[in-house]
Design a protein around this nucleic acid. Sequence first.
DNA 1: GACAGAATAGAACGACCGTTCGTATCATGG
DNA 2: CCATGATACGAACGGTCGTTCTATTCTGTC
Lengths: 196, 196
Amino acid sequence: MGKGMETRDRILDQAVRIASRDGLEGLTIGSLSSELNLSKSGLFAHFGSKDELQLQVLHAGVARFTETVARPALAAPRGEPRIRAFFERWLAWANDPAMPGGCIFVAASVELDDRPGPQRDFLAQAYGDRIAFLAKAARMAVEAGHFRADLDCEQFAFDIDCLALGFHYAKRLLRDPKAEPRARFAFERLLTLCKA
Amino acid sequence: MGKGMETRDRILDQAVRIASRDGLEGLTIGSLSSELNLSKSGLFAHFGSKDELQLQVLHAGVARFTETVARPALAAPRGEPRIRAFFERWLAWANDPAMPGGCIFVAASVELDDRPGPQRDFLAQAYGDRIAFLAKAARMAVEAGHFRADLDCEQFAFDIDCLALGFHYAKRLLRDPKAEPRARFAFERLLTLCKA
DNA sequence: GACAGAATAGAACGACCGTTCGTATCATGG
DNA sequence: CCATGATACGAACGGTCGTTCTATTCTGTC
């Protein structure tokens, strides 16, 4: 790996951190470069535009999510255990100290949901992939006999997603310590419904 | 009402609209004033600072929410009907054409959840009030015999909140037409659980 | 170890930001 | 109808934004 790519990774690592706290617009090239002891123009040269920087930040975020949440979940056995692993990792992801502002996708989604462009497209696709991942995991749980055969797996994915979002808001805005037990309770109740 | 207050209302009305789309930071005094055919300084004089403008936008948002969602719900009979009315109005609120960017509280919450200050405090309180409103409505439903006696009303409030958030994201980011039926389905399932 | 090309720095740009100030216009009560 | 305070304007401020240049310093290769 050339030195350029090394620097680029260092930039994106810090950029993801900042974007999770201040959003993709709040992430500015000037402050980012000074935090990394780089010149504005030196950093800028790596991306060519702020739009491209934002896009790369989202890519880096997805890579980190895959690494931290999705891949470990895939290491768990198919069916219910995998779904439990995914949910647990997801809750931890929202509290990851490496992302002090909470989930970067929550922040970016709200920012971009009315601004058409490649960033929005990428984010929507990532969202869809997450839902698809959950729905597929549910289908596997059905096949494995963990869940009942007539389960609406797409609805299940929506339900889980709601929980993660609700947890995120209660935790980050209200700092409500009960947010996590509430999310877990709703999760268990949902699993129970998937069986009977 | 003096002319000043009239202008002020006109400003806040448009400001809420813009903030719902671009966030409280994306709302700038320059563009807001030109959209209203006012001078920057003339508009500025109404608030004295951007912080105060943001705070007043949030106040105006709460007032609109109360008018559009909470008050009509209170007109419905206590218990389950009121909860249904609240949920219905809430879904409609997220699609209100007067707020093209979706719920202003969702946007502002993500923006402010890591920035201490009066705006954050106000928003957290509004969030808490909403949860409290739902929990109280659930307690009334228990008293009325609509819901079972041992229902955890705080959990119920959390559950409903999750649904509204999940709906908002699926609708605004994915433009998923199934978002609304999915949210409704989860709502009905939740009500069923509250009875048996 | 010289050379090519990548990587970074520095200065400057126009645009817009929030804010201040002095001034003009308006509305209105005596 | 005029005086007075409320309301709005225009110009300017320092600062930061993204971006563009040119120049310098590194890094890896023959």
